[in-house]
């Protein structure tokens, strides 16, 4: 066998191995969508990916058993608000930490780094009482405030700081010479140059908020106020009887749009996460 042939064979082996490894990563999605079209009996019947009877009505009933459209909207607007707030706050702080010298900066960095290590579960109980004190239990505020200012927000701040550090200073200096204030430099020069970092923060923050579970579980109680993950985990009829096929249909409705966006922008999304891990 020639060297070329061995290389081709070698590569083919690798590709086949990767294809097999990919099965448990793709298959759940396919199964989910297929089961979303089935009846309960068929879901637990003989394994088949093509439903014997396509129950399109599952996807309609999802909206009648729960205020699913409202829950969808809740998740969407909360994620957008959190993303917007995080972008502003983290880029402000990240800029100051990267570019400005001030007393207490080192200490602040240390505090913020330690926050990254602490699981949300540790502070969830006092935060419950804090929200109670603000009168915000059973509103959406905790789902907006906690991710924005908690470890997730801190992570965004670090990401922004690292990015600003890597930017060349010259343009900003020039801006200052032209009479821009600090704020002006941040807004007119630094921010436009850091689009990739802002996009990364936006993507990660949005997904984090979209998938948030512990906080909604504790702070929100009525069906109308539910967010998607909470609604999915509790898909029952009025008597608490689980609606298996509707749950899977609803899960498909919640997951597939995100997957489509992911497939379109996969490069950008994957890079965003790479940025967050290495730098954070």
């Amino acid at each position: 066998m020639s060297l070329r042939q061995t290389r081709i064979l070698y590569r083919a082996c690798w590709t086949i191995a990767l294809l097999i490894a990919a099965i448990p990563f793709i298959f759940p999605f396919i199964w989910m969508v297929s089961a979303g079209f089935k009846s309960v009996t068929e879901i637990f019947g003989a394994p088949s990916l093509i439903p014997r009877v396509w129950r399109w009505e599952n996807f309609v009933e999802v909206f009648t058993y729960q205020p699913f459209a409202r829950q969808y909207f809740n998740s969407l607007y909360i994620a957008i608000l959190v993303t917007g707030l995080t972008l502003v706050i983290s880029s402000l702080a990240g800029y100051a930490l990267a570019r400005m010298r001030f007393a207490g900066a080192a200490l602040l960095m240390l505090f913020l780094i330690s926050a990254l290590m602490v699981p949300e579960e540790v502070t969830i109980i006092p935060n419950f009482f804090l929200m109670r004190w603000f009168g915000l239990v059973d509103t959406h505020w905790p789902l907006i405030l906690l991710p924005t200012f908690g470890p997730q927000g801190v992570m965004a701040t670090f990401l922004m700081r690292q990015y600003f550090l890597a930017l060349p200073k010259e343009l900003e200096e020039a801006g200052k010479m032209d009479g821009l204030t600090r704020f002006g430099v941040w807004w007119k020069i630094a921010l436009p140059m850091s689009r990739p970092a802002l996009a990364a923060v936006a993507i990660i923050t949005f997904l984090h908020s979209w998938n948030l579970f512990l906080e909604p579980l504790i702070f929100v109680s009525s069906l109308e106020m539910f967010t998607l993950p909470l609604a999915l985990s509790n898909f029952n009829d009025s008597y608490g009887l689980p609606l298996w096929n509707l749950q899977l249909a609803a899960t498909s409705l919640a997951v597939v749009p995100i997957l489509i966006v992911y497939l379109i922008a996969q490069r950008q999304i994957i890079e965003s996460f790479a940025l967050s891990g290495v730098k954070g």
Binding site: F128, M131, R132, G135, V137, D138, I218, F219, S221, S222, L223, E224, N234, N236, S238, Y239, G240
Partner: peptide, 21 residues
Amino acid sequence: FETVPVNDYTQKLTFQVAGGN
């Protein structure tokens, strides 16, 4: 009338009471 899902009903009710609401 506010619908709270039946499976977690008592717990959610407790959250409302303990949450001052």
